[in-house]
Design a protein around this nucleic acid. Structure first.
Length: 171
DNA sequence: CGCCTTTGACCGGCGC
DNA sequence: GCGCCGGTCAAAGGCG
């Protein structure tokens, strides 16, 4: 299942009062501290890919550039991906919720309300910029995120969140 | 002293 | 089997 999201309000990421509308089938939207005004679900069982491409949505920057505020930085939009693969014993079992942001920001560390601990940094192929790896600092919380600068436009930061927070409180 | 970042090593998946 | 690549580990050092 792919979740494609557009942030079209001026919600602040750190505003704890802003919650997504009730959603029973998406851990992603249940936990996200950003009010999502539009989101679409695509059931796509034929596509086992575990990644998504930014490009097909980035063309909408014109309308997105003027929305969003990321605690001092400007968030253009975000695009999410959420997949669930719960197969039988012959298939890998995987529950994977992933969402990615492309954020126009001079800094890579965006305060999204959670506390992160950096655990790795790698140079990746096809990008002159290093990719940084973070884990949620809360005990037992499996959520990770990757942060890297857009290779085409270094003024943008690509942040990919993976997993669901096991705690309700922000830190 | 506890928590964090840094960074090289290590590991597993994948293509050839 | 080998090499490449992305992701993770863990030791060492820094900082408040």
């Amino acid at each position: 299942m792919i979740i494609l999201c557009f942030c079209t309000n001026d919600a602040k990421m750190t505003d704890k009062n802003l919650r997504p509308p009730d959603s029973s089938d998406s851990g992603f939207t249940n936990q996200w501290p950003l009010e999502v005004s539009e989101y679409f679900y695509f059931d796509d069982d034929d596509d086992p890919t575990d990644s998504f491409v930014f490009g097909h949505v980035l063309s909408q920057d014109n309308q997105a550039n003027e929305v969003g505020d990321f605690k001092g930085t400007r968030a253009s939009h975000f695009e999410g991906f959420s997949s669930r693969e719960v197969g039988n014993e012959h298939e890998k079992k995987e529950v994977n919720d992933r969402v990615a942001f492309k954020t126009k920001s001079e800094v890579e560390i965006l305060d999204d309300g959670f506390k992160w601990r950096k655990y790795g940094k790698k140079m990746v192929k096809n990008s002159p910029n290093p990719r940084n790896y973070y884990k949620c600092s809360v005990d037992g919380c499996p959520v990770k995120k990757r942060v890297e600068r857009d290779k085409d436009d270094p003024s943008y930061v690509l942040t990919t969140y993976e997993g669901i927070h096991t705690h309700l409180s922000y830190c």
